[in-house]
Design a protein around this nucleic acid. Structure first.
Lengths: 156, 156
DNA sequence: GTGAATGCAAAACCTTTGCAACTGG
DNA sequence: CCAGTTGCAAAGGTTTTGCATTCAC
């Protein structure tokens, strides 16, 4: 098993960038390597199914369940972030920096938006004193600069 | 039908607060009234199933599908916001002010956090010039002041 | 009266799981 | 060698849908 019961994130070796540092307890299989490879190659926030289709070209026998497993392992290893926008399928993102996600309602693209002042951000919120924040998830929707807001584009 | 194909939000009459202003095209049924009533009576961000259970006491014959329908109508009428945290079931919130959601990892409660400076918030983000933001969704996770971070509370 | 809304059950959808076979270290 | 991982198929939980009936306007 060991499907579930992930170690505490603080136990993990900080990512070695080149070598996919999954941390102890995790084996480096070709499925996991390829899933991670797909995510970093094209940072377009694919869904599990999209990852599956891309990985199949390298590992034809891979199953969707394994892709879900790999994505879960990578997420718990801290190498990948799961991005949930509305009720749509989860998307995955190898950008570990503190950032928001912008979803264009015209072209459907999802873009990373850097947070260049986390303090200002927290100051903008009326947080009760004594609140401890572990994680912040910011999703923005609208139109990106290249999508003219006047033209009703295909929307995807 | 008319299930789907909602009018443009700009066409809607601004809420009359007392009288549940659903807008033209929408009929005021007792199911819709009660669903809205339940949401405003106890602003604890219930899921559709929780709303269903509460409404059943007033409208015993209501079905879960109708609750989903009502919540969708209320959302599209702009009277209610759908709140999506991770992959968990959607929750619903009658607070129309610009606000974030704080989810306590100890007690599980979801709290509204006012955004007292929307400009500072946007300034904290590195948005490409020309980006038009329609909607902002901010979800925070951590421990609320009343949950001592040391004690491993039931977590729910 | 008439079209919109409801209730029911069944379907759709994304995701997780049980288990036997396999494999990385 | 052996626990962790895979692949498959089947189950799970949330949300949507088809359709006949009911109801708001």
């Amino acid at each position: 098993m060991a499907r579930k019961n992930f170690p505490d994130p603080t136990d993990l070796t900080p990512s070695g960038e080149g070598g996919l540092a999954l941390g102890p307890e995790f084996r480096l299989t070709k499925q996991r390597r390829e899933v991670f490879e797909v995510l970093t190659a094209q940072r377009d926030h694919p869904t599990a199914t999209e990852v599956f289709m891309r990985v199949k070209e390298k590992v034809p026998g891979i199953s969707l369940a394994t892709v879900y497993n790999c994505l879960e392992t990578l997420t718990h290893s801290g190498l990948v972030r799961q991005v949930n926008l509305d009720r749509s399928p989860s998307r995955y993102c190898p950008n570990l920096e503190d950032h928001a996600h912008f979803h264009c309602e015209s072209c459907g693209h999802i873009t990373d938006i850097a947070i260049h002042d986390p303090c200002a951000l927290q100051a903008a919120l009326a947080l009760p004193p004594g609140t401890h924040i572990h994680r912040t998830e910011i999703a923005l929707r609208g139109h990106c600069p290249t999508c003219t807001p006047s033209a009703k584009a295909p929307q995807n």
